[in-house]
Design a binder for these strands. Structure first.
Lengths: 217, 217
DNA sequence: CACAAACATGACCGGGTGGTCATAGTGTGA
DNA sequence: TCACACTATGACCACCCGGTCATGTTTGTG
């Protein structure tokens, strides 16, 4: 909820401010990000920032939301059709994540902001920033899940809301994982030789070991 | 590397300082944590903190390392024997994670510090704090991996170092996941009906969907 | 007891923070 | 040309930060 002034702003100026804010908040997160730095880098007086946003939190929340929207806009074309002909539901989501990862690779600024919001420690800030993301998921992903349930690809008793919440939490981690030093594709994680059935933590563990297991558990 | 004074300290006082530091750093992370608050909560003059540690970073690194050591000490008895008779290597690690999760449930302070270090944004701080953890893994977990390779439980061409690095990155997330609001066990993630083979991201996705998939991909 | 070494203390420092506000500038419509 | 609403600006505010240091206290030792 930026002030009306923000929308009436000269777009070049608005872009400069947004860009500087993404860079600063992306580097240092919400509490560590400095409004002084943002104003300086954007070539704008600090006072101006408070003409656009009520306070630092609203500013950060706006930056986070805009970033989510930008990513979402990139995903929409791939969401639209649902699974392609002959594509499994799982394969469909795998493809979506690949698209997201490619986007992250091409947009370091958006990636940094995503990381900053994902890594946010303060529960209040984290939740407030996750809420609009949740809305986007509810709009773009929820119908896909419901369709999958209707098609029989997902179990009829699937708790769609719970599944949606989990996706909101997990997918950013997945999209960011390839850019974590030490977790890159050089680890030869492609291909699997094993499988496991167990609790959630167990299955995540199996993900780690799958490419290395000779004997299926 | 705390100053010598720290070790010669009255243990009650030392414990108060450590406790206050874990609480504060656990809540607000490294950059957000306040030495003033720590000193006040510990009932100690701020100047004293600088008699024990050279600066804030060394202090934080020490707190993080002590927390890792405390957790590690709890795990040692379960690491010692390696897999039990009849236990698969994967099942063994699954059991370790369960132990870790139980520990986290019983020790919110250690859990908060783990979260703060895991969520740390600054790459330098994150890496510096992860290094001693890596050493612990190299000491406690690496032999298990090597043994598994020798036993044929893991593929002979397994890159043990890479696998170790990945475990250092992933396991804390797994241990913390059950305490993330919205990711709790109420999601009925136990039991699985499907399996998938694909890239790392794909397999993580399969973890999300496994309990819900009716038809194996 | 005397002396010294070690330690605890909190006032103090420079600097950075989010946020405010009086002022100056700008654009618009009559 | 004037008047008015709007916006850009940066000096300024109170506050908090990590870190220092002179001082007083405690402790160990001969």
């Amino acid at each position: 909820m930026p002030r009306p002034t923000w929308d009436k702003l000269d777009s070049a100026r608005r872009e400069r401010v947004l860009h500087a804010a993404m860079a600063e908040f992306g580097r240092h997160g919400y509490s560590g990000g400095s409004l002084n730095v943002i104003a300086r880098e954007a070539g704008v007086a600090k006072g101006s920032l408070f003409q656009y946003f009520a306070d630092k939190f609203e500013f950060f929340a706006y930056v986070a939301e805009q970033t989510s929207l930008a990513i979402y806009a990139e995903m929409v074309p791939h969401l639209d059709g649902g699974p392609r002909a002959g594509e499994t539901f799982l394969g469909f989501f795998q493809r979506l994540v690949d698209v997201w990862i490619d986007y992250m690779a091409a947009h370091p600024l958006e990636r940094a902001v995503t990381a900053a919001t994902t890594m946010e420690l303060d529960p209040q800030v984290r939740q407030a920033v996750r809420e609009p993301v949740h809305r986007l998921y509810a709009q773009g992903v929820r119908p896909l899940l419901e369709q999958a349930v209707a098609d029989g690809a997902l179990a009829a008793d699937t708790d769609v809301d719970a599944l949606l919440s989990m996706l909101v939490l997990l997918l950013p981690h997945l999209a960011l994982a390839p850019f974590e030093p030490g977790l890159d594709s050089a680890l030869r994680l492609h291909g699997t030789r094993g499988r496991a059935r167990s609790t959630a933590a167990h299955r995540l563990i199996s993900v780690v070991f799958a490419p290395h297991l000779v004997v299926a558990p």
